[in-house]
Amino acid sequence: MKNNADYIEMKVPAQPEYVGIIRLTLSGVASRMGYTYDEIEDLKIAVSEACTNAVQHAYKEDKNGEVSIRFGVFEDRLEVIVADEGDSFDFDQKQQDLGPYTPSHTVDQLSEGGLGLYLMETLMDEVRVQNHSGVTVAMTKYLNGERVDHDTTIKNYETN
């Protein structure tokens, strides 16, 4: 594994209107690294999902928090870390609510939320979630051909 990385860090208010700004930056970084159009679109969704969770969490708590984002640009991969400052929420429960839906789901069983984590897991190569005073999501996507094993699992780390 190659470990020399360039880091780009951002901090934005935990408000919905800033998620698009993060996407624009991500798009620029990923495009410079040579990801394909589809890979960049996948990255945009996965990172937005993490930011959406952070923003909605801050909103629920009625806090004017911030979301920190760090892009780690490696030769063979992009690592994106999204961290909020809020109290952690129950990722175990969230994970149990993970999609996808099947045709056997009744209309009443369809939920308007809960697909975010599933999409992160599906669209990235690695996703790690850390719960402490806030929630930190670390996601990795390898540049094409750098990775043989593409099984993605969400690993949950409790640090309390």
Partner: peptide, 20 residues
């Protein structure tokens, strides 16, 4: 030009209401 799970959520909600 872009959509994520928040959009899916809106369409799921719309779908449920329309069915009802």
């Amino acid at each position: 030009s872009y959509m994520d799970s928040t959009g899916l959520g809106v369409f799921v909600g719309t779908f449920k209401m329309v069915k009802k």
